[in-house]
């Protein structure tokens, strides 16, 4: 097994775990953590392809971009969750269903 595949393998496991977390968790924080895992799985892929694909630092740049974006996203998402908690006294995502008709 060459080295790229082992990175991709790790990234695939991370991604699967993240998706699993997003789908199965009811807790808003946990869903957010799943999303972080998915993003970081993508980061791992970026870096791996950048390293073994001969693309210099292009992958790194995207990796940095994703981390910044993930930070911003986490900030917004946590703010939403705090607001949901303030309004409904829960952070269970199934409960936040007023927009559903």
């Amino acid at each position: 097994m060459d080295q790229l595949n082992s990175y991709l393998f790790v990234a695939a496991i991370l991604f699967s775990l993240g998706v699993f977390g997003v789908i199965t968790r009811r807790n808003g924080i946990a869903v957010l953590m799943g999303v972080e895992l998915i993003l970081n799985a993508a980061n791992v892929n970026f870096i791996a392809f950048s390293r073994f694909g001969g693309m210099n630092f292009d992958g790194h740049v995207f990796g940095m971009l994703v981390i910044v974006m993930a930070a911003a996203e986490a900030a917004v998402a946590l703010a939403i969750i705090i607001n949901i908690y303030n309004n409904m006294n829960t952070i269970n995502v199934d409960q936040a269903s007023q927009l559903k008709q």
Binding site: V19, V22, I23, V31, D94, S97
Partner: peptide, 12 residues
């Protein structure tokens, strides 16, 4: 259903 997680499941 209106549940996001269900939709995601379908996507996956």
């Amino acid at each position: 259903t209106g549940r996001l997680q269900n939709y995601l499941l379908f996507v996956v």
